[in-house]
Amino acid sequence: MNDMRITERAVDLSETKISARNVQVFYGDTHAIKDVSVDIADKTVTAFIGPSGCGKSTFLRCINRMNDTIDTARVTGDILIDGEDIYDRRVDPVQLRAKVGMVFQKPNPFPKSIYDNVAYGPRIHGLARNKVELDEIVERSLRRGAIWDEVKDRLDAPGTGLSGGQQQRLCIARAVATEPEILLMDEPCSALDPIATAQVEELIDELRRNYSVVIVTHSMQQAARVSQKTAFFHLGHLVEYGETGQIFTTPRDPRTESYITGRIG
């Protein structure tokens, strides 16, 4: 793969968006995340890598409290977004999730029209005062999802009728439509073919201008291509966290090195 791009990309010194301290997650009796602390910067793409079952997706789902929907899950420690603890009792997960959008592993468009898929978030959050504004939001989001040109003539067609890659970009557009500040992506390309993957990756790079993007991936090449920062998870521990270039060229921890060189995972 073309890893030359890593060195070309300068990393801006930007403010911290998400700050996690001593996060532990339990699923029933299983200890899924063990004492993870990490600072994620604004306007960057941060990649979580690691072998399957290492806890990277679990940690991602803590950031918008999606783990709340699982009865047996229990989260301790602090996760701060813009300095506010999202596990504070006063925080409503509904309000939080409007601010922290999420894109899932499998494209999951609702069985509605393309327009209604994108308009769903703005409607429930009351972001548009009238139809004209809603139309604007939908168009803007679809453009930002890099799918506007492909669907602008068939906004009434069902979202489930699109191809896999289009569906995933529709889901990204849908997530963007609620105007989040953070976008969480859980292996967004694992169900896509290489061409669709390339399109989505290009899109992720562009989303960096407006959002703090956190992406979980099991493909090291993908992490290398799209991210500025990389965190390596192993068996529930955050093993190493740093600049993507540094992680891939000079890992400090032997486990990271084993993973990157293909000996574990």
């Binding site: 929907t69 999730r97 601010k99 999420m102 999951n108 609702f110 429930i124 959050h125 849908r174 997530a175």
Partner: peptide, 22 residues
């Protein structure tokens, strides 16, 4: 599928909104 519910909850919909609209 659960992914449908996740999609809606992930957008910040409440449970009842997810049920009624998705």
């Amino acid at each position: 599928p659960q992914s449908m519910r996740d999609g809606s909850l992930g957008l910040g919909a409440t449970k009842s909104e997810t049920i009624r609209q998705v």
